[in-house]
Simulated assay, not measured.
Amino acid sequence: MAQALGEDLVPPSELQDDSSSLGSDSELSGPGPYRQADRYGFIGGSSAELGPGHPPADLIRQREMKWVEMTSHWEKTMSRRYKKVKIQCRKGIPSALRARCWPLLCGAQVCQKNNPGTYQELAMAPGDPQWMETIGRDLHRQFPLHEMFVSPQGHGQQGLLQVLKAYTLYRPEQGYCQAQGPVAAVLLMHLPPEEAFWCLVQICEVYLPGYYGPHMVRGWVGG
């Protein structure tokens, strides 16, 4: 059932260091707009709580309460109120509840429950040197102006490294694709690494099966 819901919801050489695009150190660490992060964690973003195009606060609260009620009895909700879930998804999931809703909607919570300890084993295991080198070169490219990913030693980049490495060990025949990085990074903005990993698994294997792979590299080179 989660797959059916997803089908409706889902509408996808040497690398040079492009960190210069971030601006100087003084721009990032000194006074000014680059130092302040907005409510989504992006440095230099709008600090306004609600801007043009955002729904009013009372409407957001109403949507939050609906999601709280639906997720509190998830199996019953999916069996009896499936159409309502689809409607609410299309209206948008409030940011405050994405960590609660995403694993339920994509089936990651079930995968995690059925595979206890799997992520911990993968996270602790050494990665394939080939993939570790490639992943390491890409880390700074993932949302470099988000507070989680600014520092190479920060928990964001390290968590991203672990999640992407874990997937290469979980599916060694598929390995790593550069396009997985932004997806995993967004998941980590809302979820702990283990939950982000299982959401990534579902995205790669249920929602976009076969999408991430060597053919994508050929597509980029050719186009």
Rank of each mutant, 00 (worst) to 15 (best):
G175C: 10
D18W: 05
P152D: 02
P193M: 01
A2K: 04
V206W: 00
R61I: 11
L122S: 12
V163R: 03
G175K: 09
G23F: 10
W198G: 01
H140L: 11
H190A: 00
I60V: 15
T168I: 11
D25R: 15
S95M: 06
E195N: 01
R61G: 00
W220N: 14
V68C: 05
P144A: 09
Q153W: 03
K113Q: 15
T134E: 13
E75I: 09
R100F: 00
M65Y: 00
P55N: 07
L5D: 08
S72H: 06
L9W: 14
Y207D: 10
G53T: 11
G127H: 00
F197V: 05
P182A: 12
G30Q: 08
A4W: 06
E133I: 02
L160N: 12
E195R: 01
A123R: 11
Y82F: 14
P103F: 02
Q180D: 02
K76Y: 11
N114K: 12
Q109N: 08
E205Q: 15
R81H: 14
G45P: 07
L97T: 07
E49Y: 06
G41N: 07
F42C: 04
V110I: 02
L187F: 10
V110R: 13
P126M: 07
Y207T: 04
F143Y: 15
W131I: 03
Q174E: 07
C111H: 07
K83W: 03
P103V: 00
R61D: 10
L160E: 08
Q142F: 02
L161A: 09
P55C: 07
Y212V: 04
N114H: 03
W74R: 13
R141W: 05
W198I: 03
L145P: 01
L160Q: 15
F143M: 15
L164M: 02
V206G: 07
N114I: 01
C177T: 14
S26D: 12
G159F: 09
Q202W: 01
Y40D: 08
G45V: 01
Y170H: 08
S72K: 09
S29L: 12
P214N: 09
C101L: 03
R100L: 14
H54I: 04
L187W: 04
G51V: 13
Q120E: 14
A184Y: 01
R137A: 13
P144Q: 06
L105F: 14
I203L: 14
V186A: 10
A99D: 04
S151W: 01
L15R: 10
L169V: 09
C204V: 09
G127S: 07
S13T: 03
P116E: 14
A166G: 13
P144N: 10
A166F: 00
T77S: 14
E121D: 12
L104I: 02
W67F: 05
P144R: 05
G213L: 06
D17G: 01
F42D: 10
E69H: 12
E133Q: 05
K86S: 14
Q202N: 08
L200R: 07
L104K: 13
K76I: 05
H73T: 10
W220G: 05
Q3Y: 10
Q157V: 05
E173W: 05
C204I: 13
I203P: 01
V206F: 02
A99L: 07
M70I: 02
K91T: 10
W198Y: 15
P209Q: 11
T118D: 06
Q112V: 04
Y167L: 00
Y207L: 13
G23Q: 04
H155D: 11
L160P: 09
L164N: 03
R141P: 06
W198L: 00
A185M: 02
